[in-house]
């Protein structure tokens, strides 16, 4: 049974990879591509928060702050200091990661609701900075004309990143790399230390897990991913403003983590892609969009309290049981 499930999983992963890879080749539909690119960006955000919450067990409602820091840093580096996108992208991630460490320090001392409030406050501070540092961020008006990564030529072969198909592949490759590194990380000593902290902080400490180091590592890695997502978003949409990086957005990312299933790798992908598409489909309901979206979320949480992956797990356990007797 287990073997079967494993090969089914491998098959599913391979199939989705192939589908994700060929989609831009078979559809010219810009709207689909757009939604997929946005989904990809959300996968990065959700993977990051999943490390912090799903694995290390630290509930953060400030994730959008790091998304914003990555977006602003990368956009401004390219626009004001004429950095190349390929440099601005990782620096955006690093800037978010450093901010993440700053949030990590208070998180060392706080637990439960206190930690949540602290992360909300952190997100609010970041939002206020985007709003009020007008000389740099243009405040609420936002920054239009964020350049796309530009062109990349190999001999006479030119890759133009302002084309949606090309940008799709850029996001695709980064998502694959992020997933792979994530996979390695959570199945290692580091990932086990994260889960141990989530499960029982004192027991983790007593078997030798350095709480300070691993909590900060979780915040650093998770927020770095958010920064990368922010950079990819800024140079794709071409416009950033404080509105995109609010508490509402943090909650949105949190919901994706929970609906997908915390502490798994596939869960966040389900959550990110599923909810991005769901929100798009809901456009048909115009004004009632958020109401219906909210209802669907409530139903999902009631039906699948452990998220989509948890649901599959429960199903698998139930299928297994009769054979055990």
């Amino acid at each position: 049974m287990k073997q079967k499930f494993k090969s089914a999983k491998t098959f599913l992963i391979a199939a989705s990879l192939i589908i994700a890879f060929v989609i831009p080749l078979i559809t010219e539909n810009e709207y689909y591509l757009h939604t997929l690119i946005i989904s990809g960006i959300y996968i990065l955000l959700v993977l990051g928060l999943n490390l912090i919450l799903g694995y290390a067990g630290q509930l953060s409602l400030g994730h959008a702050a790091f998304y914003g820091i990555g977006a602003y840093t990368s956009a401004l580096l390219m626009m004001k200091l004429h950095f190349s996108f390929w440099l601005a992208l990782p620096i955006g991630g690093i800037a978010a990661g450093i901010a993440g460490l700053m949030l990590g320090f208070p998180a060392l001392r706080l637990k439960g609701p206190y930690l949540v409030i602290c992360t909300i406050a952190f997100g609010e501070i970041a939002h206020q900075i985007f709003m009020n540092w007008e000389s740099l961020t243009r405040g609420p008006m936002g920054i239009p004309g964020v350049p796309s990564p530009g062109e990349f030529s190999i001999g006479s072969f030119v890759i133009d990143f302002s084309e949606k198909q090309v940008y799709y592949y850029l996001v695709f490759i980064i998502v694959i790399i992020a997933l792979l590194l994530n996979y390695f990380l959570v199945r290692s000593k580091t990932g086990r230390a994260f889960v141990a902290i989530r499960e029982d902080q004192t027991a983790a400490e007593v078997i030798g897990v350095n709480l300070t180091f691993y909590k900060l590592t979780a915040f650093l890695s998770g927020t770095f991913l958010a920064g990368i997502a922010g950079s990819l978003y800024a140079h794709y949409i071409g416009f950033i403003s404080p509105e995109s990086f609010t508490l509402g957005e943090s909650i949105n990312i949190l919901v994706m983590v929970i609906v997908g299933g915390m502490g798994t790798i596939i869960g966040p992908i389900f959550g990110a892609v599923g909810l991005t598409f769901l929100l798009e489909l809901m456009r048909a309901f115009a004004d009632y969009r958020m109401v219906i979206y909210g209802l669907i979320l409530m139903i999902l949480i009631v039906v699948l309290p452990e998220g989509t992956m948890g649901g599959i797990d429960i199903l698998r356990r139930n299928l297994k049981k009769p054979q055990k007797i």
Partner: peptide, 19 residues
């Protein structure tokens, strides 16, 4: 039991990340 081995494992964060 693997977490129990924690103090004995020497791999660094970078080793874990890049497998």
């Amino acid at each position: 039991v693997l977490v129990g081995h924690h103090p004995k494992v020497k791999s660094l964060f970078i080793d874990d990340l890049f497998h």
